[in-house]
Write a protein that binds this DNA or RNA. Structure first.
Lengths: 254, 254
DNA sequence: AAAATGCATTCTGTATAGCGGAACAATTTA
DNA sequence: TAAATTGTTCCGCTATACAGAATGCATTTT
């Protein structure tokens, strides 16, 4: 009478995690009775599970005999994000971008005031790209960097403002000009670099974000200006934005 | 035979969480056998626990029959920190400190006898700091920790006294010395660590408090000693203190 | 191509881990 | 002071989660 292959579930583990979830979802600490009522468990059962969670460090027993989630839960969760294999999650959309644009595709994360390229797909056209995997570039003058910068601009503005070193004659070296550019970037949803790092190399970038909007990286496309006809800018920008969104969604399901 | 009151621990829950921890701590996904070997569990046991975790959404089964942690763990953990929206409240003053000092800025909370860094802004100078977000440090030898310790010193003194392990030759390992240092800290209004945790890394800390004086966290600045000229100590100390006060005021309005 | 290893998954009988309910102590409420 | 709620302990029963062996599928070795 049981369904075909009802996945077997260990009730102890299940109940324990439900307690943990309850405790993390609530601002105040809770007592045994309250907890057991809300979760539909026996008092003694709840008590024992709490003891276990305390012993393992996930829950703290307050002096007033109530229980609260510790930061261990958060730490464990954090490491998921840190180990998140962005590369895997992004691979598919990078291939898509490559096919659509035939240009060089980058996957970058931020490291201080630089971007670090953690993956790329080389241009399909006979033009070499200069940035190897592992390579870095200043955050304020490449597509991926400008995208990530725009997200944390309030915090990073003043730091960046001090190192607006020019790389080409297009590089933005005036903080006010950067302010404007960042505002535009946020509005537009993707970043555009008009040859500000490498002469005649334009690039686009859009952020990859976690469900809480935290930026974990960016996708970018690099294009030699000679390859670009009028109208391509909007098209590629939209493509990058779409791809980054798709990767963000992808991350959610990991 | 059994010790006085050995706290009862549900093994199922314990094992389940150990699997989760393992999976979150690792970049790649793992198979049942590998997992069971590393954790010292039976294969069938591991398999069943994994089934449970999958059913609850904490773990994902890959097409290649390996298992990986999902973002659910992260989401659950995140709500712990969210429920104290310290990060938001502190962001502005952290940026201020970063601008004023150019050094690494930390936002920390206390978790037992450790501090946990829940946010940071990296140094603008070309020197890396190696405490990641989520990282921990002993409460008695870093700026943020010493600040928080000084606030609850009557309660924590005896516990801390038992683990005064040295990390550098500057680490305070004598409880009487610590008594004095804590008294000074309270008087001064901010804490100072003279390279007691990391050799040649000095740090400052000041408490963030609720209206009822309860300490909820601390702001800190970390400085390599070579960056410090005479007089900087007082200046940075004052800055940190001021920043922490501002955040405390800010919290009131959230 | 056959044998041997590795894997994930299923099965099953059994021991025991984890359970519910009752009892107790300590507070809080009436 | 009595009644009602707390958190915690105890205990005997049984459903639960267990170990180990068996299965079936892939790879690798011979």
């Amino acid at each position: 009478m049981t369904k075909p292959s009802e996945p077997r579930v260990d009730s102890t583990l299940s109940k324990g995690l439900s307690i943990l979830e309850k405790l993390t979802s609530v601002k105040v600490s809770m007592g045994v009775s309250e907890l057991s009522r809300e979760l539909g468990l026996t008092k003694s059962n709840t008590f024992r599970l709490l003891q276990t969670l305390v012993a393992l460090g996930y829950v703290r027993r307050e002096p007033d005999k109530t229980y609260a989630a510790t930061l261990k839960t958060w730490q464990v969760g954090r490491s998921v994000v840190e180990n998140l294999n962005l590369r895997t999650a992004a691979a598919e959309m990078m291939a898509f971008l490559s096919e659509e644009t035939k240009e060089t595709i980058y996957l970058a994360v931020r490291d201080g005031l630089n971007v670090v390229y953690i993956d790329k797909i080389d241009s399909l056209k006979p033009i070499r790209s200069w940035n190897p995997i592992g390579g870095t570039a200043p955050i304020y003058c490449v597509g991926t960097g400008k995208a990530m910068l725009s997200a944390d601009y309030p915090i990073l503005r003043d730091q960046v403002g001090q190192l607006l070193k020019p790389f080409t004659d297009k590089t933005i070296t005036d903080i006010n000009a950067l302010d404007k550019d960042m505002a535009k970037t946020r509005l537009r949803g993707y970043a555009f670099d008009a040859g500000e790092f490498r002469q005649n190399i334009l690039s686009f970038g859009a952020n990859i974000v976690l469900p809480d909007e935290e930026v974990v990286g960016a996708l970018g496309v690099s294009v030699p200006d000679v390859n670009l006809s009028e109208g391509d800018v909007d098209r590629i920008g939209a493509l990058v934005q779409h791809a980054a969104r798709a990767v963000s969604k992808n991350l959610r399901m990991l």
